[in-house]
Design a protein around this nucleic acid. Structure first.
Length: 489
RNA sequence: GGCGUCGUGGCCGAGUGGCUAGGCUGGGCUCUGCAAAAGCUCCUACAGCGGUUCGAAUCCGCUCGACGCCUCCA
């Protein structure tokens, strides 16, 4: 029997503002769409956090035996800002004297490299906005035909007020449109819109605009919310299970998506909306545009102003997983340092599991512990709670290793299997020392350890301490234990 | 200005009407030639003020503070 039949998941639905029991449209299958990055610059760690949260969610669904179609787009057509004739990709292209698609390619490659470093699973489909211009034009035509969009000077706008007569614009973000109208900021620059709340479906390109396509209305480019509506509909259907993204996309982006889909297909597109919270730096949201951000590469290479040392992708992943996806998380040197120690303790215990010898009886109830792990994840993917349980497991490991507790061969198998599944398959952590020390280096250190032990036998403390201290200066720490000396790099 | 989220021990960070979060740090102990590492163990908090309740950090109200969205943003 599939695991998902034994585990009921509750997840927080932004649409209702409550935790709800998750029930997919088709039993055993899940369609999930997550808004991906706009590739006009390097992704920063805040971007990574959102995708990592959904990576963990994706991993858990898969572990439970669901067949998941996970779609995460790449926005490779620049979004237009209201008061700016030029979008970000075009701006970057002009400044760097490159083709827009060169910009797109560069940062798409960067994005994928970062995800690889952080041990991400690939989504099932990773569609691009520019690959779906035709579908976007068709969707615009449908919305016009349905009377919810209007054409002005070659551009097409969604008529929010008219939509709101029969539907609820604000259903997701809990905004009251009348309030929004009252509190509209004065926009300088003359707009073609009937109302400031209206948003562009198609924008006529100014002469200097590089990314442009032909359409029934003008040579131009699609509006900034449309791609997600079109691509999610195309690959997941008119109604699908989960739509995710960062909290900052809730309004207007996701609100507009709902309106567009509703205007096209006359039904609510998404059953469960999930929003991840922001990653803060210096107490403020990480953001590309304000420059308050740190790049993944700066963290694992250590070349930054904020952190005292480099932190491996796995430590960073552990750090992010220690906070719930709906909570704000603050990045700081101290927090990462603490996470690194905790991560090391967890992984050391994981490696010790294989040395445990089974007994005839079990003194620990491993099934309750296992259930606690699942309960944590079933409750809105509570990874920090899961990690607390895993540290319970660490305690078990130490008791077992010291023969202060026992497990039967069957229980031990369950324990090992569960521990590894949650650490590696679901949290997506990677084990220590897997790549950073070569066989040759290990051999040399083993040799030094042997020489030091010889000195210790001879009570030559000066020599043995010299070996120990100088290795430490090189970043190699010797650890004397009952079973002999081990080391970490 | 509008809407919303949040305010937990030295730090990070869960949880929630009554029962231990967890990690890190610090103290003690074990181990050790010494140290480190490792293990065990201790440190019991929920912004403030009212209210509801047998009982609130958890529910309600107010105050203060932080942050987010309202403009591109994960």
């Amino acid at each position: 029997m599939e695991l998902y039949k034994q585990h009921q998941i509750k997840l927080y639905n932004s649409l209702s503002g409550k935790k709800e029991i998750f029930k997919p449209i088709i039993d055993g299958y899940i369609g999930m769409y997550v808004c991906g990055p706009t590739v006009y610059s390097n992704v920063h760690l805040g971007n990574v956090r959102t995708f990592m949260s959904f990576d963990m969610i994706y991993r858990y669904f898969m572990h439970l035996g669901y067949k998941v179609r996970y779609v995460r787009n790449i926005t490779d057509a620049g979004h237009l800002t209201d008061d700016n004739a030029e979008d970000k990709i075009s701006t970057k292209a002009r400044l760097e004297k490159l083709e827009p698609m060169e910009i797109v390619q560069r940062y798409t490659v960067d994005f994928h490299e970062v995800l690889k470093e952080y041990n991400f699973l690939s989504p099932s489909i990773e569609p691009t906005a520019t690959g779906h211009i035709v579908e976007q034009i068709e969707a615009i035509q449908t919305i016009i035909d349905n009377g919810l969009a209007y054409v002005i000077n070659g551009s097409v706008y969604f008529d929010v007020l008219k939509y709101n007569e029969k539907e609820n614009y604000g259903i997701l973000s809990k905004r009251i449109i009348e309030d929004a109208i009252e509190n509209t900021r004065e926009l300088d620059g003359q707009s073609d819109k009937k109302n400031p709340q209206d948003f562009a479906l198609w924008k006529k390109a100014e002469p200097e605009h590089i990314q442009r396509w032909n359409s029934p209305w003008s040579e131009g480019f699609p509006g900034w919310h449309l791609e997600c509506t079109v691509m999610s509909t195309k690959y997941l259907g008119e109604q699908f299970d989960i739509h995710g993204g960062g909290m900052d996309l809730k309004f207007p982006h996701h609100e507009c998506e709902i309106a567009q889909a509703q205007a096209c297909n006359h039904k609510a597109p998404v059953n469960y909306w999930m929003h991840t919270n922001m990653l803060n730096l210096n107490g403020k949201k990480m953001s590309k545009s304000t420059g308050n951000s740190i790049l993944p590469g700066e963290i694992y290479k250590g070349n930054n102003e904020i952190l005292s040392k480099a932190f491996s992708p796995s430590v960073t992943r552990f750090f992010i997983m220690q906070a719930h996806y709906r909570s704000i998380l603050d990045l700081s040197n101290d927090a990462l340092l603490a996470s690194e120690k905790g991560y090391n303790r967890l992984m050391n215990a994981q490696q010790l599991i294989d040395t445990i010898v089974p007994s005839n009886t079990s003194s620990l109830d491993i099934n309750i512990w296992k259930q606690n792990c699942y309960d944590a994840m079933n409750d809105d993917f509570n990874s920090p709670m899961l990690i607390a349980q895993l540290f319970e497991g660490v305690k078990f490991v130490n008791l077992l290793v010291e023969n202060k507790a026992t497990l039967t061969i069957d229980d031990l198998a369950i324990f090992r299997n569960t521990f590894n599944t949650f650490v590696f398959d679901i949290l997506g952590l990677e084990s220590l020392n897997s790549d950073n020390n070569s066989d040759k280096l290990s051999g040399v250190v083993e040799l030094m350890i042997a020489m030091r032990n010889e000195a210790r036998v001879n009570k030559d403390w000066a020599l043995s301490d010299k070996i120990r201290d100088e290795l430490l200066d090189l970043g190699i720490q010797l650890k004397d234990g009952k079973e002999g000396t081990t080391f970490s790099i």
